[in-house]
Design a binder for these strands. Structure first.
Lengths: 325, 325
DNA sequence: CTGAAAGCGCTAACAT
DNA sequence: ATGTTAGCGCTTTCAG
C-alpha cells in the first residue's frame, strides 16, 4: 500500500516541468492567443503523464465560472436499449466538443434534478422532453442552460408517438381503437401523454376515443383484455410500448386470437425483441442516434451563447410496419 | 427576459439574513458542535428560500476537500428494467446519507471513467463488477474511493449467474447443455463470463462443455439454432439473457418444438417480459434493491474511512423457476 | 512567450 | 454564538 499519496495538482506539474502553473493551464486548455513553444509544451505534457495528473473539476469550474459537465435527465421509465444508443451517441458527440456527460435517473425520490445539477455544477441540463416549469426555473437559477428535444410542430414527442400509432391504424381502415395501458403507476404520465395522442388522431378522423384498458405483463390478463376489446368491436390496439404489445400478442395466442386478423397491434419504442415477436411487431421507432448528435449540437450552441430560438432537434418518431398490423 | 441575474451566493444569503457566511455554512450543513439559535437558523433558511440559493458544488468540494458526489459506472449492456430499480434504490439510499448519485454509461468511446470522475470530482466510484486495474488505479489517483458489489465466494457475479443456470438444469437431470450467445459484440465479454460459469458447472458435474451457438433476436435464426441443438442431443439451453431466451422460445414455436419438453430454456436477468412469455420463462434474478441498499452502505462506510475488508455486498443471484424449465 | 497575483464560492480553524 | 481569516486548485488579467 502506497501512502495516501496526495493527488497531484497543477502546481506539482508546474514544478516538475520547470514552468509556472499558468503555463500548465495554457498548455492543457490550448488557450487561444498563446503561442507555447513546442519544447515547453512537451515538457508539461510529459510531467502530466508522469504524475498521472488530472485537473480537479471543481477547481476548474470554480475558477472558470463554468464547468464542462452536461447533465442528462432520463425519465426512469424509458430505460431501454434505445435510450442506451442515444446516450452513447450523445456522450460521444459531447466528448468531441470537450464536454463530459453524466446522467441522472429522474423520478426516484431523493435528489431532485436541480439538487444534482447544483451538486455537480453542470452548465447544461438536457432532457428528452420538457421539464415542468418549477424545475426548469430552479435549474436556471442554479446557473444551468436547458436543452430539450422538441418537436417542430411543438408536439411533445410522447403525444406525437400516440398520434403516429393511431394514424397508422386508421390509415389501414380501422375505425375503433383500443389502448393498452401499462401497469406501473410511474409510467402513467407518459402513458397518458401517448394516449392523448391516440385520442387526438381518433378525434381528427371523426372516431370515438380509444377504449383504454389497464393491462399487466401477464398472459392471462392480456388474454382477457383481448377478448374484451373484441367484444367491444375494437379491431386494433395501440400498446403503451413494445413490452406491453408483446405480452398482448402472447395473451392473444392464449385466447386463440391472431394478429393482425382478429386484432391488429402496434407497439412503441422499437425494442430489439419487437422483431423477434410472433408475429413481428409493428412499432414506432426513433432515430435516437441522430437525436443524440443534434442534441449535442444544441448543447454546444447553447454554451456558445447562441440560444437557438428554433427547436434544436426532433426525436423524429416514425412507424415501422411489421406483421402484427 | 430577466437580466442574466447572477446566481445567488452564500455571501448574498449572509447579507440578506444579516449574518456572516460562516453562519450560513453552519446552518446549511448542520455542522456538528455548533449551537445556532432557532431564530438565526430560521432567518438564514428564509433567506435561502427567498433567493433560491443552492450552494455551488464545485466551491463546496474544493473547500471541503471532498465532494458529496458518487459516480456509478453502468456497463452499457446491462441497461434494463432491473438496473433501473437498482439505480433508484441506490440513489435513494445515498440521498439519505446526503450523497448525490450520477451515472456514467461505460463502454462508449469519448470520456473514460476516470475522466468523468475527475470532471465531476466524485469522491466515490461504484460499479457492479470490478473494473480493470488500469482504470481502478487511475480512479484512485483521481482521488476517488472505489466500491464494488462482490460475491462472497469471490466469484464475479456474471460467472456465478452462468453456474446457477447450469446447476439448475443439471439438477433437473439434463446431461447435455447448450448456450445461446448474444449477437452484439459489446455483449461478448459478459457473455463469455456467463458462459464460463456454465462450463464450470458442467465440468463440475462431469459433463461436456455446453454447445454454444451464436444467435440473433430473430425467429428464423432461433428456430434453426433450436433444431441444431436437438440434433446434437442437447436437451436444455442457457440463454445469455431473457431477451435471447424469449426469442428462442419464439423460434422454437416456429420450429414446432415445445418447452421444456423438447428443449428446456433458462434465461437471465428476470426482465418483466419473462413472466409474460409462453411458456413463462425460468430465469436468474437478483435482489437489486437489496444490492442498491447495501452498496450505498458500503459507500458510506468507505467514506467514513472504514474500508470494509469484507465484500460489501452480493448481487445474490438466484433461480426463478417457471414453466420453460 | 511566461510568470505573479487576484480571485471564483465555499469551509474550517481560530478568534472573540 | 458568530465573525475573521485563510486557503482549496485552478483560470485569467496584466506585466514583464
Amino acid at each position: 500500500m502506497t501512502p495516501p499519496a496526495k493527488r497531484a495538482t497543477s502546481a506539482d506539474v508546474a514544478r516538475a516541468a520547470g514552468v509556472s502553473a499558468t503555463t500548465v493551464s495554457y498548455v492543457l486548455n490550448d488557450t487561444p492567443g498563446q503561442s507555447i513553444p513546442e519544447e515547453t509544451r512537451r515538457r508539461v505534457l510529459e510531467a502530466v503523464r508522469q504524475l498521472g495528473y488530472r485537473p480537479r473539476g471543481s477547481a476548474r469550474s470554480l475558477a472558470a465560472g463554468r464547468s464542462d459537465v452536461v447533465l442528462l435527465s432520463i425519465p426512469h421509465l424509458s430505460i431501454g436499449p434505445g435510450i442506451t444508443r442515444f446516450v452513447e451517441q450523445f456522450a460521444t458527440s459531447l466528448a468531441q466538443a470537450g464536454l463530459t456527460l453524466v446522467t441522472h435517473l429522474a423520478g426516484a425520490p431523493g435528489r431532485s434534478l436541480p439538487d444534482v445539477c447544483a451538486a455537480i455544477d453542470a452548465s447544461v441540463v438536457a432532457s428528452l422532453d420538457p421539464l415542468d416549469d418549477d424545475t426548469a426555473q430552479a435549474l436556471r437559477r442554479a446557473g444551468a442552460d436547458l436543452v430539450f428535444t422538441t418537436e417542430v410542430e411543438a408536439h411533445p414527442t410522447m403525444r406525437r408517438m400516440g398520434r403516429l400509432q393511431a394514424e397508422h391504424l386508421i390509415d389501414l381502415g380501422h375505425r375503433r381503437l383500443g389502448y393498452a395501458m401499462p401497469e406501473h403507476p410511474l409510467l402513467r404520465r407518459i402513458a397518458d401523454d401517448r394516449m392523448r395522442g391516440v385520442a387526438e388522431a381518433c378525434a381528427h378522423a371523426g372516431l370515438e376515443p380509444p377504449l383504454a384498458l389497464d393491462t399487466k405483463l401477464d398472459t392471462a390478463v392480456m388474454a382477457r383484455a383481448a377478448r374484451r376489446w373484441r367484444r367491444e368491436s375494437v379491431t386494433a390496439v395501440c400498446a403503451y410500448n413494445d413490452e406491453v404489445a408483446i405480452a398482448l400478442l402472447t395473451g392473444m395466442r392464449r385466447a386463440r386470437l391472431t394478429a393482425p386478423g382478429d386484432l391488429a397491434v402496434v407497439g412503441a419504442d422499437d425494442i430489439p425483441l419487437a422483431q423477434a415477436a410472433e408475429p413481428p411487431l409493428s412499432t414506432i421507432a426513433f432515430d435516437l442516434e441522430k437525436v443524440g448528435r443534434s442534441l449535442a449540437d444544441a448543447v454546444v450552441a447553447s454554451l456558445s451563447g447562441r440560444k437557438p430560438r428554433l427547436p434544436p432537434t426532433s426525436m423524429d418518431p416514425h412507424v415501422v410496419h411489421r406483421a402484427s398490423t
